[in-house]
């Protein structure tokens, strides 16, 4: 363990572009070491005790800082926090020494049943209090700050009283967690619910944003109306790149992830998308300097 720690690059995620590491690209990433700042993985894919996933993740960690992105903790659930899930996550954190640990503003289980999906919360005072308490508990157990990501959603609740950006900001206020700003999710939800994505980007607490996600979506037509589905299987669209530029102009350079989870393109394509994000950050920085 000690030797591994000495050989590893620092844990901290640099303010550069990174890509998601998926099993299909393990060998190529480790073999070719593409010029990207960092990698992100889904925490749950490494909850096993051994075998290939951890073997390759350990190797990748010798080359890059790594961010752990969770999809299954179900922070917004009214069930008790899943201690076994947190134990797995804690073990993984100690093993990999990630630079960032993130989860979602959502729930995915109730009454012991899991739906393995990011289900939407109502944005009410009750939900805000509940979610904040849970983020507190998670941070206490993990003994570290986590980032909360804004979700894509396909429905809203008529009894919601708080705008999503205000809800996110209030969680930060209540728990001192950070924000993972998914610009694609802002766009998807803005189209689906008819709010102004640019307003969202202006309203979010700038100091809290420690990571950005960029991804592609799919358009479904339901009832004669477009609905955007956050599928992570397409290139990033022009509107999302434009929003990203707006976000970077306001926030400065922020670790920015190209997120692609299914129908994976060749690794080179992901690296090119990362380099496009890097260029936007570099140009904004040059303008400021």
């Amino acid at each position: 363990m000690t030797t591994e720690s000495i050989e590893r690059p620092p844990a901290q995620i640099p303010a550069q572009a990174g890509i998601g590491l998926r099993a299909e690209h393990y060998k190529e990433v480790i073999g070719s070491q593409p010029p990207i700042g960092w990698l992100e993985v889904h925490s749950e894919n490494y909850f096993g005790q051994g075998g290939k996933p951890l073997h390759y993740l350990e190797q990748a960690r010798q080359l890059y800082p790594i961010s752990l992105h969770g999809v299954g903790l179900s922070i917004g659930s009214t069930d008790p926090l899943n201690k076994a899930h947190l134990d797995h996550l804690n073990r993984l954190i100690h093993r990999i020494e990630p630079g960032l640990v993130s989860e979602h503003l959502s729930w995915s289980s109730v009454d012991g049943k899991y739906f393995n999906d990011l289900l939407p919360l109502p944005y009410t005072e009750e939900a805000l209090k509940h979610f904040s308490t849970r983020v507190h508990q998670v941070q206490d157990i993990l003994q570290q700050q986590i980032l909360i990501e804004n979700p894509s959603s396909y429905l809203s609740y008529s009894h919601s009283t708080i705008a999503e950006w205000d809800f996110m900001n209030a969680i930060v206020e209540n728990t001192a967690c950070g924000i993972l700003l998914d610009v694609n999710n802002v766009y998807v939800s803005a189209v689906n619910h008819g709010f102004d994505a640019r307003h969202y980007l202006r309203a979010i607490t700038a100091d809290a944003v420690q990571e950005i996600h960029l991804a592609g979506f799919t358009i479904d037509i339901i009832g004669g109306q477009d609905i955007l589905i956050d599928t992570h299987n397409k290139p990033i669209c022009d509107e999302v790149w434009a929003l990203y530029q707006v976000a970077i102009e306001r926030l400065g350079a922020i670790p920015s992830l190209i997120e692609w989870d299914s129908d994976l393109p060749p690794l080179d394509f992901l690296v090119e998308e990362a380099s496009r994000a890097q260029t936007i950050m570099d140009e904004c920085h040059a303008l400021v300097a």
Binding site: N116, L155, S156, I222, G223, Q225
Partner: peptide, 29 residues
């Protein structure tokens, strides 16, 4: 689920998106 907002896209259609995703990701597993 009368508290799920609906417009041109009905409540059931919106819930179907989630149901579809739940079944497709568990089926993939």
């Amino acid at each position: 689920l009368s508290y799920v907002a609906q417009d041109k896209i009905s409540r059931d259609q919106r819930l179907f998106i989630y149901r579809n995703h739940v079944f497709s990701s568990l089926t993939s597993a």
